[in-house]
């Protein structure tokens, strides 16, 4: 009897074992929808991460841009300060208005009785054009000057031509003609009052003054 019970028990256990062994089969069937959800979840999370990344990127970009803007503003401010620092207000008795001379705009020089731009002076004009591009609000007047030799009237014509050829060179470098006026002072405004070649060379010039900033 005891042996019979034991056998039954074993069988039972076996059956139970079989039953239990059949259980995972049932679970597998149940688990199929749950995997799709997980993929969905994963995708959602992926999207979330991407969104976060995009947002972060946008924030960073914005920060970079803000920083750039601030840097630009600082640079503009610095440039403005630099310009302001370079200016010397010039008011001449008997001549209407105040103009500004700037150390940023360099004077160019000419040969005797000539008005063509010499190669070295062309380089100076390129630098002056860069300054005018950096400060798009500047309006300038180019003054044409001569040395004391020769006739007053002829020198007025020559000074006019020096101012005009300087203006045309700046226009060729992309500066708008609306920003440039010219005036000839002939031999009336020497920089150096001397009566020698050194003084004359200094006085034959096109000089820049700022009339609006």
């Amino acid at each position: 009897m005891s042996k019979k019970r034991t056998t039954i028990l074993i069988l039972l256990v076996f059956c139970l074992g079989l039953t239990l062994a059949g259980c995972p089969k049932k679970t597998v069937v149940k688990e199929e929808p749950s995997a799709a959800a997980r993929r969905e979840e994963a995708a959602r999370m992926e999207a979330e991460r991407a969104r976060e990344a995009r947002e972060r990127e946008a924030r960073e970009r914005e920060a970079r841009e803000r920083e750039a803007r601030e840097r630009e503003a600082r640079e503009r401010e610095k440039a403005k300060e630099e310009l302001e620092k370079s200016l010397i207000a010039k008011k001449t008795p008997g001549i209407e208005g105040t103009v500004y001379e700037s150390t940023l705009l360099k004077t160019i020089h000419f040969d005797f009785d000539k008005y063509d731009i010499r190669p070295g002076d062309a380089e100076i004009l390129k630098e002056n054009a860069a300054v005018l591009k950096k400060y798009p609000n500047l309006k300038i007047q180019i003054e044409g000057h001569c040395d004391e030799r020769g006739t007053e009237a002829y020198n007025l014509a020559l000074g006019e031509r020096r101012a005009t050829s300087t203006k045309n060179y700046l226009i060729s470098l992309g500066i708008s003609p609306d920003r440039i006026t010219t005036i000839s002072y002939g031999e009336e405004r020497p920089l150096d009052p001397g009566h020698n070649e050194e003084a004359w060379a200094k006085n034959r010039r096109a000089q820049f003054v700022i009339i609006a900033k």
Partner: peptide, 28 residues
């Protein structure tokens, strides 16, 4: 007596006027 640059006076044939160039308005 305008403290400007006054240039090239020309006396009229009737003697009544003088024409000249001045930079008063920042132009000759």
């Amino acid at each position: 007596k305008n403290q400007s640059i006054n240039l090239s006076p020309a006396w009229s044939p009737d003697g009544k006027k003088i024409i000249f160039t001045s930079y008063l308005k920042r132009n000759p």
